Simulated assay, not measured.
Amino acid sequence: MKAWSDAASLILAARHGQTYSCAVSPAIHNYKLLCLKRHQKSSFMPGLYVFPGGTVDPADVNLKWYEYFNAFGLDNDRLASLVPKAVSRPQIFQSKENELLREISLRITAIRETFEECGILLCRRNKNGNAHSSWVEHVSIPKGEMQTWQNKVHNDATEFLNLCQKLECYPDLWALHEWRNWLAPTYETKRFNTAFYLACIPHMPYAEYEAIEMDDLQWFSPEEFSLTGFEFPPPQQIEIARLTKIKSIDNLLNIAMERNKKGIQKLYLPIVVQLKDGIGMVMPEDTMYPKEIKLYEQQIIDKSDITVDEFEKITTLTKNRIVFLDTQVNIIFTDNGKDNRIVFPRPGYHSKSGNVKSKNKLQDE
């Protein structure tokens, strides 16, 4: 049995509010992120807020997609342009015989799952293969038909290609930018090796969560998400915390495009740190991160001689770590030589905010 399932997830950022020049450093975020709350009865991460995404389905790797893209003027060379010229690539990007390139199929998974979970169809209709924007596009579906198609795709992933054919559109692969590759720690009962993509959209599209898997859908800025008291898995907390420092969606898109050119070259596997009075985790780039990691066996760094406070404040280190406390989760990372500390309150310890409420339908503001 395989130790984990391959998956893809999408960090979707939508422009919101004022448009800033890239030369201007805005004081507040001019974009919001999409997060969904997993159903309380889910067998994996019940009740936690996540980015849309899910496991790779055989329908996502089917070679029929080549023929479909070719019909839009997107030949195999254009599709191969999605493969970065990186020397080192994580295992998840290793393509298999008689399957699509992984750089294609993982993006299809992210786009299919995003539609299935919240009804946003990130597709294009133009037939000029060289005219792609770095901003992601979406195709609107009549609200009366959206849930019907979401249910169809949920029950059978091959229906996603049927949906694209019906609407004469194709997945907007080139606007999904490689962001990070997260592997769940060994202590998880279900493990996923997930390619995270980032896409920026010019406005917030209509969204409707699929009630079989999800309980809620929210658009908030990274800073707002860090204050809500929602419960997130560590990868989402790390990504949201780092995005609190990027206020402009234009800057975010530029960063994503530059990262995409290089491609994901490193696996992100959190390693547990045992402390005198608590638990922490370290990620790659942290000075304490092991030189050799164990993908299949439990690996714990024993620092039981120091306290949580000492672990947070220890100097002369590059930090990329999490500390779990009773009332909060602290994300600590070094950026441009400066240590940053982003605090996520634990559920039940956040201040009640009148603008944080459950919605299953969200529309452009």
Rank of each mutant, 00 (worst) to 15 (best):
I11G: 10
A13G: 06
C22A: 15
V24E: 15
P26L: 13
I28Q: 14
L33F: 06
L36H: 01
K37W: 02
Q40T: 03
S42P: 04
S42N: 13
F44V: 09
P46T: 07
Y49L: 09
P52M: 06
G53Q: 02
D57V: 00
V61S: 15
N62I: 00
K64V: 14
Y66K: 11
F69M: 14
N70D: 15
A71C: 14
F72W: 15
L82S: 01
K85P: 00
Q91Y: 12
Q94H: 11
N98K: 15
E103V: 05
S105L: 11
T109R: 12
I111M: 03
F115P: 04
F115M: 03
F115T: 01
E116D: 06
E116P: 01
E117Q: 15
C118D: 04
G119C: 02
R125Q: 15
R125L: 13
N126S: 13
N126I: 11
N128I: 12
N128C: 11
N130T: 14
H132M: 13
W135H: 09
I141C: 09
P142F: 09
K143L: 11
K143P: 03
M146L: 13
V153R: 10
V153P: 07
E159W: 01
F160P: 07
N162A: 13
Y170I: 11
L173G: 07
W174G: 04
L176P: 07
H177M: 12
E178D: 15
E178S: 10
W179A: 05
R180H: 05
N181K: 05
A184S: 14
T186F: 03
T186K: 10
Y187P: 01
T189G: 00
K190G: 00
F192H: 08
A195V: 15
E208M: 03
Y209N: 08
E210I: 00
M214S: 01
D216Q: 04
Q218R: 13
Q218T: 14
W219H: 10
F220G: 03
P222F: 09
E223P: 05
S226G: 07
P233K: 08
P234F: 05
Q236C: 07
E239W: 06
I240Q: 08
L243V: 08
T244W: 09
K245G: 09
D250R: 10
I255A: 02
K261L: 01
I264D: 08
L267P: 02
I271C: 07
V272T: 13
L275V: 08
L275C: 11
D277K: 13
G278K: 03
M281I: 03
V282M: 02
P284W: 04
D286C: 11
D286H: 12
Y289I: 13
P290K: 10
E292D: 12
I293F: 02
Q298M: 06
Q299R: 07
I301G: 08
K303V: 08
K303M: 15
I306F: 03
V308M: 05
D309M: 10
E310S: 12
T316A: 11
D326S: 10
D326M: 06
Q328G: 00
V329S: 15
I331E: 09
D335W: 14
K338P: 04
K338I: 14
D339G: 08
R341G: 02
V343F: 06
V343N: 05
F344C: 14
R346D: 00
R346V: 02
P347S: 05
K352F: 07
N355K: 07
K357E: 08
N360L: 03
K361P: 04
K361Y: 09
L362T: 09
L362G: 02
Q363M: 04
E365W: 13
E365I: 12
